[in-house]
């Protein structure tokens, strides 16, 4: 078994809707999709973003695209126009998720 970063087996894109950030996480190869489903759980993502996300984390599965979609509620300091953050729209959170490690 090997410990790898999600960066090595997945790619992602993130954006905003109000104070909620979404991160779409996509397996680079179909065989890695089950790894994402099994290990990138809402609990782990909530813990991963504990400094950024103050609300709950939701997860949705898109097996047709070998992708997961995460919603991080209360993650943008009030949302795009209110937020004082550099990344007020959560655009870089995609890569932040790819820092997470999983077992292959």
């Amino acid at each position: 078994m090997a410990r790898v970063r999600l960066l090595d087996i997945a790619h992602a894109r993130s954006g905003d809707k109000g104070d909620c950030a979404n991160i779409g996480l996509i397996a680079l190869k179909p065989e890695h999709y089950p790894v994402l489903v099994a290990q990138v759980t809402t609990e782990r993502v909530k813990e991963h973003f504990r400094e950024i996300c103050r609300g709950r984390v939701e997860r949705f599965e898109l097996p047709n695209l070998h992708a997961l979609n995460f919603l991080l509620h209360e993650a943008l300091d009030g949302g795009g126009t209110v937020s004082l953050r550099t990344d007020a729209q959560g655009k870089t959170l995609s890569a932040a998720l790819l820092r997470m490690e999983v077992d292959l």
């Binding site: 894109r13 979404n22 779409g24 898109l62 047709n64 979609n69």
Partner: peptide, 26 residues
Amino acid sequence: TEQLVYEIGDPRAYITPDVIADFTSL
């Protein structure tokens, strides 16, 4: 695919004024 999952919520229910689209079907 990155764009398909960009700024969506529940992919089974992408709500628009004209239809609710299911992104898990395509």
